[in-house]
Amino acid sequence: MRGVASGAAPLPAWLAEPEPAYEPPRDRDGFLRRNALSLASMLTVFRTPACPEGPIDRMLARVSPVLRLMGTIVCVGCVSAARNMAFVWVALAATLVVLASRPARRILSVARPALVVALLAALVNVPAVFLGSPSAPVRVLMKSFVTVTIVLGLSNTVQTERLFGALASLHVPSHVVLVCDLAIRDLALVGQVATSLNEALACRSIGHAADKSLGTAGVLGMTFVKASELARRQSDAMACRGFDGTFSVERERVITPAGIAYLVALACAVICFVYLEGAVA
């Protein structure tokens, strides 16, 4: 650039004169780039903060995440352990009601993976039909859908900081909580970087790439480099702000009116499970 600014060297001919119309050589690199882009953009899901957006989720948000975690584990356990379908149907009805109370985007973010998992599980169980258990695929499908929806519902509606804080309340070491918290943040940043790099690659892919993997490999490689750089800079920033290895996690009150109501509802669910398992043995 010294050349142009100082006037010593003009623009080269290929830049100073107009070019004939450009017809790009044919190429088929769309598949690789689209898949690299979609892989990278999957990481951007971490950018979408978990947020209670439906009326039921907003009520549940008043409950301590510790209780929510425990409740989720208990509900998933009951649904999985149910030997007859009565309790599973009750759980399905409750799950669908909570799902229906959410905005469309939250419904999709939970229902889509839950359906995929459920259908895969049902598919795996199809041989059971020929082995004398014709209802096995349906049972597995229902149970998978309900349990995955419950778990995803928790992760989609409770902020990660609160969830990790709940882990600390369960005596998980605080440095584990810190690592998890930082990892989520960094994954979101890395996803952003990868998406931007893929866009830059798309903008500069103007013809035929003899080595199709070069650009995509470069993007993935740079993403890794950026991730390492982010981690190093974050460590330096934390040291500059006095981090000495100890990390205290803010703990929420567990026993609140909302928490008590939640425990009562959970107890009712367990009683329902025990009753239906016994009544329909």
Partner: peptide
């Protein structure tokens, strides 16, 4: 299956309504 008709009817209503809203 396994639930009294009244409970089954209410649950069916809940499931149907929830599915439609979703």
């Amino acid at each position: 299956a396994g639930l009294p008709d009244v409970a089954g009817y209410i649950l069916s209503a809940v499931v149907g309504v929830a599915l439609l809203v979703i």
